[in-house]
Amino acid sequence: MKLNLKVKLFVAILCLITFAICTTASSTESKPVRIDCDVHAGPCSANISGAKVSLEIEPKPVEAMKDLIFTVTFVGEKPVTNPYIDLGMPGMNMGRNRVILKPAGESLYRGEGVIVRCPSGRRTWKATLTVPEMGVAEFVFDVVY
């Protein structure tokens, strides 16, 4: 069966779209993301330019579509300006979901946020803690649906 040029062009476009979808939307599945934090068990720790920071999310277990409290504690150097957390999924654009942290004690910052549920069924989320003038730390973890 001889296909004309337009059919070939259509098939080429279809392949291109399929390839684009597979390499962008499913990038998480093709490259497994390392989960470095069990938020259900307790706080998770990381280092930012000489300071040790820990992230605690409550209540536990950490569930999607629930009101959550994010608490960040600094040991060592303290931030000059308030830090904030961006919530997102590794390899998937979920829109801007920022948790604003406010001082809640000595070297302690707290804020409220929600981790949303993805209909694809993926549960792995990433909290990117940004401390202006100091740097960023990433926490990758699974949530409960």
Binding site: I17, I21, T24, M92, N93, G95, R96, S120
Partner: peptide
């Protein structure tokens, strides 16, 4: 403006795959 831009980015980075 931020949320419009977010919609634009999400459209090409998410909706094409999920709702396309």
């Amino acid at each position: 403006f931020v949320i419009f831009s977010s919609g634009l980015a999400v459209g090409f980075g998410h909706c094409i795959g999920m709702c396309g």
